[in-house]
Design a protein around this nucleic acid. Structure first.
Length: 270
DNA sequence: GCCCTTGTTACGCC
DNA sequence: AGGCGTAACAAGGG
């Protein structure tokens, strides 16, 4: 499903739209929180394509010179299709079909080209000038030292499960259920460990794991291209690292797969 | 026809 | 007050 990695793949695909002028905007009328995006965007020029966490931000310059930002959040099953090409063909947990009836936002450009969000379950959300300050450091785009400091500050004193904290977009923007499970498996921390228990050195190892594995998964095509997710395609096999039976628990209200053998409270085997 | 899937948010409890 | 856990919600697929 679209986590930060997928949003980055969408953003890159949508960059070809920079410089184009919006000719038509159609929004699913049943879009919840439907905002009056539409006519007033017609005539605006796309000046940038940014991303914060799971949110893709389309910078628009209006004919009168005003700027507006269109925020695209893809929910669990939203796919971006640019000029008829989907950067991610088959989304985990979603249908592989591209039914025009599922188009929730369709932007046509002057001359040629289009950008649309196709979402069977209607969980995608579109906003104008979304609050960009509510996010923590981005999962991919951050300075290592600053990120480590911010994470240490965010985790300090927290008693909630490490996984719950890492899923909080105001702490790290863009991590989702799959990427958190993968990172914790890679670095060897229990998802259930109280977050505040991590000391400085384990936090630096967590940051190292994020910086090593997420860019690699991005290159491979997204949040399902780690070790853990492919391994659990059919049931719960032994842990690919140490052969201990993987567990499935609910942590932070989310289905969580982890290895009680090598994932411990401080990342050190006992 | 029930139950699964996830990100976000609302809400009650401590 | 605010951290924390839980549940509700979107809706199609199995």
């Amino acid at each position: 499903m679209p986590e930060g990695l997928e949003a980055e793949l969408y953003r890159r695909a949508a960059e070809v739209c920079v410089g184009r002028v919006v000719a038509t905007v159609d929004v699913d009328p049943r879009q919840q929180l439907a905002i009056p995006i539409g006519r007033e965007l017609v005539g605006s020029e796309v000046t940038g394509m940014r991303r914060i966490g799971k949110l893709v931000l389309v910078d628009l310059s209006m004919p009168d010179g005003d700027s507006v930002v269109l925020g695209l959040h893809f929910g669990m099953t939203g796919r971006l299709v640019v000029d008829g090409i989907a950067p991610i063909e088959r989304l985990e947990y979603s249908s592989g079909r591209d039914d025009p009836a599922w188009d929730r936002l369709l932007v046509g450009f002057d001359g040629v080209g289009s950008m649309r969000v196709n979402d069977p379950r209607r969980w995608a959300r579109f906003t104008l000038d979304p609050d960009e300050t509510r996010f923590g450091p981005d999962l991919l785009d951050h300075d290592v030292a600053t990120f480590t400091d911010a994470l240490a500050e965010s985790l300090a004193g927290r008693r909630a499960a490490l996984k719950s904290i890492l899923l909080d977009q105001s702490i790290v923007a863009g991590l989702g259920n799959m990427t958190v499970d993968e990172i914790l498996w890679q670095v060897g921390f229990s998802p259930l460990a109280p977050a505040g228990q991590l000391e400085r050195e384990p936090i630096t190892r967590l940051v190292d794991a994020i910086d090593e594995h997420l860019p690699a998964m991005l290159v491979r095509g997204g949040s399902h291209t780690g070790v853990l997710e492919p391994a659990i395609r059919s049931g719960l096999p032994p842990c690919p690292r140490d052969g201990v039976a993987l567990r499935r628990d609910v942590v932070g209200g989310r289905s969580t797969v982890w290895c009680p053998g090598h994932q411990t409270a401080n990342g050190r085997s006992s």
